[in-house]
Amino acid sequence: MIRIEQVTKRFGRGAGVRDVCLEIGSGDSVALWGSNGAGKTTLIRCVLGLIPFGGKIRVGGHDVRRRGKHARMLIGYVPQELSFYDEFRVNEAVVFFGRLKGLGALRADGVLGRVGLSGEGRKRIRELSGGMKQRLALAIAMLGDPPILILDEVTASLDACGRREFVSLLSGLCGAGRTMLFASHRLEEIAALAKRVAVLEKGTLERTVDAADFATGIAVGDRGGTVVHLVIPAPARAEAMQVLRSGGLVPTLNGVGVLVRVDENRKAMPFGLLSQAGVRVDDFEVIRSDGHGAAGVHKETP
């Protein structure tokens, strides 16, 4: 469905992507993984034809540069945060995007009902909460039933509860057979939605791994055990790395915080170290692996 061939996009300071090749078949679901600035969003923008780039991208056989309109006809896109005209009513937005997607008379209520927004049609977009906005964006993305869904860190601006709801909604709606490409920092999302994970690092595609192997593979290696994923505000991450290293742990950075392998019985150790050093931890996940390639994510709210 999506074929990315040697895509290169340079921005001023070396960000962007370089020589990325990726093929996503029909029904495949690929997560883009990498720290901020690794090129996830850039790659998605290239696929959507939003920015000029070198190389070639085909969506459903359409060149996104030459036949971008046809390519995007196959894509439902959910951005990180829906930003659309605040004064617009929810109904209007649905009807508007429905028209752009070639849908004729459309009753917004039914569409909104599917994402839990029934009865909200008369509200203005600015009156919606973050979670409602994202659900509206999803409803819009699903208009016309596109075979491809592209999500760009769709839960980044939601709180823990909103995130859970949204991911379950996604997994419920997207169902089997739909091709997906999404960027995420969250292992739980990858576990729930992805079949494969494409790991980007500084704009290059490092490797593509099976989603099931991924959570363990990335931080834990193949040894099995338990990994704690700590969500830490960006300015404090470097300090957190230092603190954890000096505590004898082996942390790795990702886009929202730090992954650190811990002893199953001493999972709280990193928290102790960090709180002593005065580093704030916003959220965390515990990832367990049986050492044979299967991983599960257990999500807890602090």
């Binding site: 046809h70 196959l74 997607k101 699903m142 208009l143 016309g144 039933d145 169902g175 057979g177 739909r178």
Partner: peptide
């Protein structure tokens, strides 16, 4: 992109006529 025909009824109903913009 959906030769498998495994879509839910929901998917089918929201589908636009063809995929021509």
């Amino acid at each position: 992109g959906n030769a498998s025909g495994k879509r839910s009824s929901y998917d089918m109903e929201l589908c636009a006529s063809g995929h021509l913009p």
